[in-house]
Nucleic acid binder design. Structure first.
Lengths: 216, 216
DNA sequence: GTTTGTGAAGGATTTCACAGCA
DNA sequence: TGCTGTGAAATCCTTCACAAAC
């Protein structure tokens, strides 16, 4: 959750609300599941039931991007999934890097959930010279001073920040300077970034801290 | 993030929007940082600068719960933090449990960020009998059939789900049956839960999948 | 002089409800 | 008949702007 800064959308659809963009991956995921075991066609009603949201919202969300359904029948599961993947840029692979090779960073690079979705971790960095050169999950740990060069060489578009909070802002500044526009931030901090850079925070403590409101 | 189902708020303030509740922990965190190194008093302007949001929004959010500031001066850092913690139920400790002791579950129980914030992991469960009885980070892995009993005995209020997606809905149903009202879900799925149960999803892939929209 | 707290205004998002199409 | 796509209505959330308080 934490801070999210919207940038351009180079595609065709203008002015799509950020909340809508954040729901599209949910649709993709649900469609993928449906594709595995079931019908060829799905209605907004069925999708809504699966995702616990209203059919109207789903139809409205999709309408920002075009007309994907057939009246009276619903949506083709396969083709809607394909169209949404293309809109989100998920019909290609993305090179990513992890900065911060402590406990958390190591867990992230060895997490098997990224690659199947097309997010390949192709570089790992740490500020601590004493671990630079070590290998983690097949990746050489590099010095952060190599970052800009490696970003260019390996065409890395996404940075995953797993450094301690004290270093997080400085590391994020480095990513921004290297031209990175998409940052997944595991540090418990709301970083400052310029317009045009998107940051999404992963912060389980923050999630817990807002849930307790409802049980206290 | 994923699915969120709002329940009652047993406190005094009625009808507080969910988005507001989710911002309060950000305020708490920023205030804690300010308390460490700085002034006794903070204005909504300063807080807003830190968190990249407007002062008006901060004041409006706080106004749902009372009047915490002094005109012309701002807010007492310490007392605002304390008040917000109390509103969120963070002025006490919470017992939590982790269900699913695979790679991810082990990372979660050994993550050092929960306890300092008052979230104590006091039980660990797995469906796989062959690892029941093992010890992970000082916790015995228990069978899920013990879950309801342990929830009662140890006064556990929060469940953290780290099982594979295939088992997630069934495990979440078990938690709900055991009376759990707050669930932190690491499985990549939007689970169905009854009203009155809050689920927050932690899902880095989902975050990545919505960021690519802005760079593709 | 400064900054809060808050009605009112404005903007954004969701839901409604129905015309139109298969 | 069944379901989409979508303007219009309703609701929700944010920002404005200023009186009141220090």
């Amino acid at each position: 959750m934490s801070s999210t800064n919207i940038s351009n959308n180079s595609g065709s659809a203008p002015n799509v609300p950020e909340v809508v963009i954040q729901r599209l991956p949910l649709y993709v995921r649900a469609l993928t599941q449906f594709a595995g075991s079931g019908d060829d066609v799905i209605s907004s009603e069925q999708l809504g039931q699966r995702l616990q949201m209203t059919p109207a919202q789903i139809r409205k969300d999709l309408s920002y991007f075009g007309r994907f359904g057939k009246q009276g029948r619903g949506y083709s599961v396969a083709s809607l999934e394909q169209r949404l993947r293309s809109i989100l840029g998920l019909d290609r692979a993305w090179n990513t890097m992890v900065i911060g090779m402590g406990r958390l960073g190591r867990a992230v690079v060895s997490y098997p959930g990224f690659a199947p979705e097309g997010f390949n971790i192709v570089a790992a960095f740490d500020a601590d010279d004493s671990i630079v050169g070590e290998t983690v999950s097949g990746l050489d740990i590099q010095s952060i001073s190599d970052l800009a060069k490696t970003v260019k060489e390996k065409d890395i578009k996404i940075g995953i920040v797993t450094v301690p909070i004290e270093r997080a802002q400085e590391v994020i500044d480095t990513l921004v300077d290297a031209g990175i526009k998409s940052i997944l931030n595991y540090a418990p901090l709301s970083p400052k970034v310029p317009e045009g850079v998107t940051v999404r925070g992963i912060d389980p403590v923050l999630s817990l801290q807002s849930m307790t409101y409802y049980i206290s």
